[in-house]
């Protein structure tokens, strides 16, 4: 290119060059999967849980809402890379971490750093846990816990999903309910414990009230964001093809909101377990929490530790199952099938 005298005004508009540049950019966008371009490099990984706010164009209400998923916000490319790296050597390292933790736990009471009566060594707790696996009382407690967890989850998810789709699809309702939702959401569900005790006593309904209240907001918020995320072009296309309201909800709104809904359900699953156990521990509805309270007040400390381990294992299993379900249901979604790119 020849030197130009800057005093002679701006450079002539080079249409060809601009066009070419745009072409290249579009091609690049197609190859990299489009929407990723909206995020700074570090955050494009969070595709499943990103932009969980109504209008991606509007100033973000809170970044936290985008990433508020609990853990492992990174999906997409980072996950693919991670999975490849996750070889057996890494798993062994993780196993070594667990062993290290158990050894430390074993040594603490043995060396007299903490009182052995109050903190039995790991081996004692693990032996007791395995003994419990053959005990029907233990399995009844697990069953009670899981039943409260499951019922509460189902009630919360169904009601929140229905209400979320209803409210989300009407701009008026969304604006009208916004302040109330934002106000009720941060109210801690445990504040309802006294009410639950008074109204329901120690029945399973007490636990259900807490679980449903806590999970409802998690799912509702996610569904609201999901419904608001519907692509305008896709919606207009569906309209001009003459799709009815039901078909539009089924084929346009639902698939868009599904990843958000799944995120909400996964979060709700963890929250529901916490509250099921809380209700059992504090109120005394039957289940693992009540068993822990009983072991603690009865001085059966080894049993208490093994029950704590059991609740942790239950939590891990629930997490794993729900992550697998999410991957299964969303197998068509770009954030999951990123390996294809």
């Amino acid at each position: 290119m020849t030197e130009r005298d800057p005093s002679k005004g701006p450079a002539p508009h080079d249409d060809e060059a601009v066009g070419r540049e745009r072409q290249v950019r579009d091609l690049h966008r197609l190859e990299t999967g489009g929407s990723d371009d909206n995020f700074p490099a570090g955050y494009r990984v969070a595709s499943l849980d990103t932009s969980t706010r109504p209008d991606p164009g509007a100033p973000a209400v809170s970044v936290a809402q985008r990433g508020a998923t609990g853990r492992r916000t990174s999906t997409g490319r980072a996950r693919a890379v991670r999975q490849r790296r996750r070889t057996w050597a890494n798993r062994l390292l993780g196993l070594a971490g667990i062993v290290l933790f158990l050894v430390a736990w074993e040594l603490l009471p043995l060396l007299g750093i903490v009182d052995g009566r109050f903190m039995p060594p790991a081996s004692a707790a693990l032996t007791d846990l395995f003994a419990k696996f053959g005990d029907s009382v233990f399995w009844i407690a697990v069953w009670d816990t899981l039943r409260a967890w499951f019922l509460g989850m189902v009630i919360a998810v169904v009601s929140a999903a229905v209400l979320g789709f209803l409210i989300g699809s009407s701009p008026f309702l969304r604006k009208f309910t916004n302040s109330t939702i934002e106000f009720l959401r941060p109210v801690p569900s445990v504040a309802l414990i006294p009410l639950a005790v008074l109204v329901f006593g120690v029945g399973i309904e007490s636990a259900l009230l807490l679980i449903v209240y806590a999970c409802f907001w998690q799912v509702l918020i996610q569904v609201l964001y999901g419904v608001a995320d519907v692509d305008v072009v896709a919606m207009d296309t569906a309209k001009s093809y003459g799709m009815g309201t039901f078909a539009r909800i089924r084929y346009v709104v639902f698939p868009t909101a599904l990843p958000y809904l799944m995120t909400g359900i996964r979060l709700a699953a963890a929250v529901a377990l916490i509250l099921a156990i809380t209700a059992q521990l504090i109120i005394g509805t039957p289940g693992l929490g009540a068993e822990i309270a009983r072991a603690q007040s009865g001085g059966a400390y080894v049993s208490m530790y093994s029950l704590v381990l059991a609740t942790g294992l239950l939590g891990v299993i629930i997490n794993i199952i729900f992550r697998a379900i999410e991957r299964q249901i969303l197998s068509w979604h770009t954030s999951i099938r990123s390996e294809v790119k």
Binding site: G94, L100, T278, I282, V308, T311, L314, G315
Partner: peptide, 24 residues
């Protein structure tokens, strides 16, 4: 990699069950 499974477990333990443990 060393810590991940252990942290995963601790995260999954409902924090309320630690109250009786810490009381002791």
């Amino acid at each position: 990699q060393l810590m991940e499974p252990t942290m995963e477990f601790f995260r999954a333990v409902p924090p309320v069950v630690l109250i009786p443990v810490f009381m002791l």
